[in-house]
Design a protein around this nucleic acid. Structure first.
Lengths: 339, 339
DNA sequence: TTGTAGGCGTTATCAA
DNA sequence: TTGATAACGCCTACAA
């Protein structure tokens, strides 16, 4: 393996000079730079980041911890973040973890190893934050979940109002004349997001003079096509006369639509479906999926603005709610409006 | 930051002893182990991987380089690989890179830093391999692209037969009675996969006594919903009387279907569409998308088997073709079969 | 402008 | 069963 030492020996200069040209530091003569770059090229030298990061203590780095590798909303946000950071002199390091892994633990590891100036959490479990977040000493923003009841002086948050969003989605079903509404959502004990959206559902039911009977109306699913499909089958099994379904994510909704069609129901003629997230999927699906669109561009932009506010201007943490948009789509039928 | 030194001081033992219990090496007294584990717990000590990897030269690690973060087929393969590796005592390190980045360069960095015993490439550009792959000294498998014309003695490959798959897809359209067939595919100069699938198309046209007129029938797209949508619009603009389309990926196909519907065409009544890959998307779409299904489970299983064959049994590289399946779906109309 | 030398946190070799 | 100590490859005062 070729190291900086080899380059030094081969080029006739010292290790420090080589290091200087590698890191584009000043104070190097043109001759030295040229010669060293030649040798680097010739020997295909690639610096060892382990050694580099072990030594370096201030890297202009922002870390992003993404929970759930196949979450299309997060993918869109990450892309957006990448685009923004590319214009600055910061470096982005993105680290993906599974749904059930501890993001705070990962954050601590990331901090040890890369010494980032700030951290962005895409998705997160309040429980994990309560447990260990105090040990993360740098500015952080929790994106997609509100952290206002988590009282840390280095943690901001930017999120869509899940309660209001779900409320609005279910309202849309009520407004279209539906009364027998089923819900497909996550485990409200474990997924805080699911819990909030569930609360929104309850509110909407209540506002329409109804009570949400969990046993009857709610079916627990994971956020995937297959789980939406199976969940919908279970739901219609126990609630056969439902006329509308709110699914807590677009993928789930699409799984549900497929299940309905496979059972001979038309969407939206027989059963209406509304989703959540507003990813490209919803727009390209057939029928176009009604959904609650999270503004991923704004989520991305604001998280970074807030993070930089904390890092560079030493601002206090903010907890910001980003408006959602109800997207009509073609998957909800207005009862009584058939001509 | 708490380091192994702090643990040593705090526990009253030496650095080496601490290191031993951290790495579960033998030759440590129960007392020492217990005391040290206590202190580690109390101080929330987390080892620094930079230091660890800098020092260590043999890690039972397999590296996976995934090209294209939002490629659903690759996501499925990675999941499968993860499942398989979890059962062994190897560790997996997955590294995602953009479509246009140099995977071989990344591989070299990965090798320096993690010293993996083997590498899996999900997707790859032959050009990059020709340029620098000689410098990667460990067993590798290129998954999803055949590397039989790349003559390296440490590079195997496992792939679906892209030529045959595309041939088959277009055959399916011809067999259904279509003659005016458009194609949505990648840049055949840059994407080798697209090139191969393009060749398959040409073969099928030829076998049916026709010539593929690129100017007229082929439209260049990226593999995304939006690009499929726009590509379809361009294609129908210059080829308005087409009756069928082969899209080189499922996402492209779905974008195309949406474009067709937005222009008032029914799928499959007016225009038939067939995709490629056979991801969950195709199965849940409306209409169910006809597609060429790549057996991602087999691709995953065989790549690992072959990699382990090279690593542990010092076997010679293999270039293996995995059969595909033509999936009927509901998006292709048989001309003349309307009752 | 360039070079010397010390140290980042860890593992591993060798004595004790 | 333990403990010094020398690396690993790189960066960076500090000296020259």
């Amino acid at each position: 393996m070729v190291t900086i030492k080899d380059i030094a020996r081969e080029s006739g200069y010292s290790i420090s000079t080589v290091s200087r040209v590698l890191n584009h530091k000043g104070d190097v003569s043109g001759d030295a730079r040229k010669k060293i770059e030649e040798v680097v090229e010739q020997f295909h030298f690639v610096p060892n980041n382990n050694a580099k990061h072990l030594k370096q203590n201030n890297s202009k780095t922002i870390g992003v911890l993404v929970k759930g590798i196949s979450n299309m909303l997060f993918a869109s946000i990450v892309e957006e973040i990448q685009r923004i950071i590319a214009k600055t002199d910061y470096t982005l390091v993105v680290s993906y973890l599974d749904e059930d892994e501890d993001e705070v633990e990962q954050a601590i590891v990331l901090c040890r190893e890369r010494k980032p100036l700030g951290l962005l959490f895409l998705g997160g479990t309040p429980e994990y934050f309560k447990k260990e977040f105090a040990r993360v000493g740098i500015p952080c923003v929790l994106v997609t979940n509100l952290a206002d009841q988590l009282d840390f002086d280095n943690l901001s948050s930017v999120a869509t109002d899940d309660v209001e969003g779900a409320h609005c989605a279910v309202d849309a079903l009520f407004d279209a004349g539906h009364r027998k509404i089923g819900i497909l959502g996550g485990n409200i004990q474990k997924s805080y997001t699911s819990y909030l959206r569930f609360c929104g559902c309850k509110e909407s039911f209540f506002a329409h003079g109804m009570e949400l009977d969990v046993e009857h109306c709610y079916e627990k699913i994971h956020f995937s096509f297959g789980s939406g499909y199976r969940g919908m089958n279970r739901l219609i099994g126990k609630f056969p006369d439902l006329t509308a379904v709110f699914a807590m994510s677009d993928v789930t909704a699409i799984g549900a639509v497929r299940a309905l069609r496979d059972r001979g129901y038309q969407v939206p003629q027989d059963v209406s479906v509304i989703g959540f997230d507003g990813t490209a999927l919803a727009e390209y699906y057939n029928p176009k999926l009604a959904t609650v669109r999270q503004q991923y561009e704004t989520l991305a932009t604001r998280s970074i603005e807030i993070l930089f506010g904390q890092i560079e201007l030493k601002k206090q943490p903010i907890h910001e709610v980003i408006p959602f948009e109800l997207v009509g789509g073609e998957s909800v039928r207005v009862i009584g409006a058939d001509e």
